[in-house]
């Protein structure tokens, strides 16, 4: 283990910038940009170690549902359909396994978009949105009357 870990580093970065840099900036574009950056750093601090689980859980859930709709073998099977979807691996990943999982996730989402709607798909949609909401730190609490 390497301390400080990424969450601790991000917290230190956020606190230091909040205490020492933000107050020194005049009101205006630079100040607005720093506030937006701090907001993002805070979100990364809360979510940096959730990304892997989110991605693998999403892939497993969607795969399981789609396998119930698709034949187990042949050109219409899940793996054949996924292989036929030409999607480039997204940038931003350092780990090859994670990058591959992200690429599969994009293909699964594309395949899911083509499926006819059903209660099973509706339930999957709800689980996907719950997962995404947790990842971005949207716990569902009332957020009225805060500015965009």
């Amino acid at each position: 283990m390497q301390r400080p870990n990424p969450g601790e580093l991000l917290r230190g970065l956020r606190e230091s910038l909040t205490m020492q840099v933000l107050p020194a900036l005049p009101k205006g574009v630079a100040h607005q940009q720093m506030k937006a950056a701090l907001h993002l750093i805070g979100r990364l601090e809360r979510s940096w170690d959730l990304v892997d689980d989110h991605l693998f859980a999403d892939n497993a859930d969607i795969s399981e549902v789609l396998m119930d709709f698709l034949p187990t073998e042949g050109p219409e099977s899940l793996e054949e359909r996924l292989a036929a979807i030409a999607i480039a691996a997204p940038e931003g990943y350092n780990d090859a396994t994670l990058r591959e999982a992200a690429q599969r996730n994009l293909a699964l989402h594309e395949l899911l978009a083509d499926q006819p709607y059903s209660p099973t798909i509706a339930a999957l949609h709800a689980r996907m949105i719950d997962r995404d909401s947790r990842l971005v730190g949207d716990s569902g609490e009332d957020k009225r009357n805060t500015r965009e």
Binding site: Q32, A36, I129, S133, V136, D138, G140
Partner: peptide
């Protein structure tokens, strides 16, 4: 504009 950098994170709440 850094207000836009993470705007896609608003989507899950809209859909929820």
């Amino acid at each position: 504009n850094l207000r836009h950098v993470d705007r896609a994170a608003k989507v899950p709440e809209c859909l929820r």
